[in-house]
């Protein structure tokens, strides 16, 4: 993030260490005590057989070598990657499209914005799990709609190993409210004058979007993308409530963190779960690094 400053701006010879200590003081305390400590603890536990109830014993790389032959782990990686690769872009595109539509002088804007955010407000409560079953179950609304257009099926979309993951991806896309709100806030930072200028030049709405909105929104798009990927890799609650914590049927919704949770809390293999967590950090970290690297080529900052 410490991008080299470019251009003939005011040069600061002395770094702002003192001011940084003030502004980042609370953060530093939190980071050292509440984050780095537990992070190091979990890193250590990744090399032990910690079972939550007894003192951990050092077991070297056992946990990591176990990963190689752990079929459920490999399966959960496949499930999670599918979710990330499909769910993240789908949700962000929907969120961005609706944010742009809402930003541009719509009747009933406040109502739409609130309505669109509702699904995200419900969280991943038990009610949502019940509801999703009602919609995508065998006798659900979705099959009813299909029946109305002449497709008769008795598939339980939520419980068939081939489709269950897609029902959860849909649930993810449906909670597009958070990125949408962030996009909206970002859109509001774009000076109106730019649009007016473009409009006077006769640019079509699409062209305005391409040449004004998108470039100026890139820091926010970047933020949403980075966070959406990190969050999607950690996705837990939705699969947890919909599958009752099992990741079923047949492990078809076994998200990485759900597996990690089952290992740590269900089977008391917290040492292995810690190792899994660090593998996840490496994977997510790699994705984030790539993201930051690539951002140089498409994200426009005003500095």
């Amino acid at each position: 993030m410490t991008r080299r400053r470019s251009g003939p701006r005011v040069r600061q010879e002395t770094p702002d260490d003192k001011a940084a200590l003030v502004f980042l003081g609370p953060w530093l305390i939190g980071a050292v005590v509440l984050v780095v400590g537990p992070l190091l603890a979990s890193l250590y536990l990744a090399f032990t057989d910690y079972n939550l109830l007894q003192d951990p014993n050092f077991v070297g790389l056992d946990n990591f070598s176990r990963m190689l032959g752990d079929e459920r782990l490999h399966h959960s990686l496949a499930v999670t990657f599918t979710y990330v690769i499909v769910g993240v872009p789908a949700q962000l595109v929907v969120a961005l499209a609706l944010a742009v539509a809402l930003d541009r002088g719509m009747r009933g804007l406040a109502f739409y914005r609130s309505a669109f955010y509702l699904p995200s407000m419900l969280g991943s409560s038990v009610a949502i799990a019940v509801l999703w079953r009602l919609i995508f179950g065998q006798a659900g609304l979705f099959n009813g709609l299909l029946g109305a257009v002449g497709i008769d099926t008795s598939t339980s979309w939520i419980a068939d190993p081939d489709t269950a993951l897609w029902a959860i991806i849909l649930l993810h896309v449906w909670t597009f409210g958070s990125p949408m709100v962030i996009f909206l806030a970002g859109l509001r930072q774009i000076p109106r004058e730019f649009y007016e200028a473009a409009s006077t030049d006769g640019a079509s709405p699409w062209r305005q979007f391409r040449s004004v909105t998108l470039p100026l929104l890139t820091p926010i798009i970047f933020f949403n993308l980075v966070l959406a990927i990190i969050n999607a890799f950690q996705s837990f609650t939705q699969a947890f409530v919909v599958s009752g914590g099992t990741g079923g049927p047949s492990d078809s919704t076994l998200f990485y963190t759900l597996y990690l949770y089952q290992e740590g809390f269900g089977a008391f293999r917290m040492g292995y779960a810690s190792a899994l967590a660090w593998l996840l950090v490496v994977i997510v970290g790699a994705f984030t690094l790539i993201n930051f690297w690539a951002s140089k080529y498409w994200v426009h900052y005003d500095d």
């Binding site: 953060w27 980071a31 984050v35 400590g37 537990p38 992070l39 603890a41 979990s42 536990l45 939550l52 966070l227 990190i230 890799f233 950690q234 837990f236 963190t257 990690l260 949770y261 740590g264 809390f265 917290m270 779960a273 810690s274 899994l276 967590a277 996840l280 950090v281 997510v284 970290g285 984030t288």
Partner: peptide, 15 residues
């Protein structure tokens, strides 16, 4: 700061 976002809560909750 980014690590804080990336680590799953289930392994840091006990520490």
């Amino acid at each position: 700061m980014l690590l804080m976002i990336m680590i799953p809560i289930h392994v840091v909750i006990v520490p």
